[in-house]
């Protein structure tokens, strides 16, 4: 079996709003890792490679299209990889760093294509966070940006209930990256956001060991003091100069018991697999209870 190439980069994957930007910022402070804002390089490369499947099963897209011209799929992938990686190699060299790190919010929805493109040339950091906290944060994200990212469109089309759509998106993206991390322990590290927040030193030491680097506790302070976003990034992470756990369990304050209960039916098995608390799935959603809740809500609105 050929030896695995030394990874030249790191790819951070996680459902949007899972803490991937915090992890990126912490790693950018390491003297060997260039981790700027979101470049969309791998998102765009994945979209370039992903075709559409016709009714007879034929995939129509660039890979098969170039295949008809005599370019095998592997060659298309190698050329695209070299094209995409070249930008990051050049940037890392300018920063005087050995490794580059790529993190863009929606990459987790292109996991299969991105891992096909990057192969063993990178180490993957797969970030998971409690699904209902992610749902709350996605609501904030969409409200702030006043738009749904295109990767969420199909979930929104499937249900008119945004929380349910976000929960389904979380399950799909997170289940895929967790399965990938668990089946590729030599080239992927699973990181729970809650563990990163609870014990940043231990978590960062583990992550850096997996990418062949050592942990310097002072780097966390440097990372949080650095407010230079260097491109597209999450607006929220720069609001704080410390790693705070205030948003952990936020769903308990922001979602009604019935909503959390309903979403637990979607997220429960994966939450349990990841060792997270699963909300009580006892619901009071019979027709009479729903009517009474609605009337109580109307009465409360009148008190404002």
């Amino acid at each position: 079996m050929p030896a695995r190439p030394q990874p030249e980069g790191i790819v951070v994957l996680g459902c949007p709003r899972s803490g991937t930007t915090l992890l990126r910022r912490l790693l950018d402070a390491h003297p060997a890792i260039a981790a700027p804002g979101e470049t969309y390089l791998l998102t765009a490369a994945a979209r370039f490679l992903e075709g559409e499947t016709m009714v007879d099963g034929l995939e129509v897209g660039v890979v098969n299209g170039l295949g008809f011209l005599g370019f095998p799929p592997d060659e298309v992938i190698i050329r695209l990889r070299d094209f995409a990686f070249a930008f990051r190699r050049e940037h890392a060299a300018r920063e005087g760093k050995r490794l580059w790190l790529e993190k863009t919010a929606v990459d987790a929805f292109h996991l299969e294509t991105i891992t096909r493109l990057c192969g063993d040339h990178v180490h993957y950091l797969c970030v998971a966070r409690h699904g209902l906290d992610v749902v709350c944060s996605m609501q904030d994200w969409v409200a702030k940006s006043q738009a749904y990212p295109s990767e969420l469109h199909r979930f929104i089309r499937e249900t008119p209930r945004p929380f349910e759509a976000f929960a389904r998106a979380w399950v799909e993206a997170t289940a895929a990256i967790v399965a990938f991390a668990e089946s590729n322990p030599d080239r992927a590290t699973l990181v729970r956001y809650e563990d990163l927040v609870a014990d940043p030193d231990a978590t960062m030491a583990r992550v850096l060991a997996d990418v062949g680097e050592t942990f310097d506790p002072a780097a966390i302070g440097r990372a949080l003091a650095n407010r230079d976003a260097k491109g597209f990034s999450d607006w929220k992470t720069f609001a704080s100069a410390a790693i705070e756990g205030a948003s952990i369990g936020r769903y308990k304050r922001h979602l009604s018991a019935d909503t959390a209960s309903g979403l637990a039916g979607i997220t429960g098995p994966l939450l349990e697999h990841l060792g997270y608390e699963v909300p009580n799935m006892t619901s009071t959603r019979d027709a009479e209870a729903l009517r009474r809740r609605y009337l109580a809500g109307l009465a409360l609105q009148g008190l404002r």
Binding site: T284, A289, R292, R293, A296
Partner: peptide, 24 residues
């Protein structure tokens, strides 16, 4: 208000009564 609705539903169950909207 989400929590107040849950609280009112809890009070109805615990007290075995229906709370008319006019009383809220």
């Amino acid at each position: 208000s989400f929590a107040m609705i849950d609280l009112i539903m809890f009070l109805e169950t615990k007290g075995g009564l229906r709370i008319p909207p006019a009383d809220i």
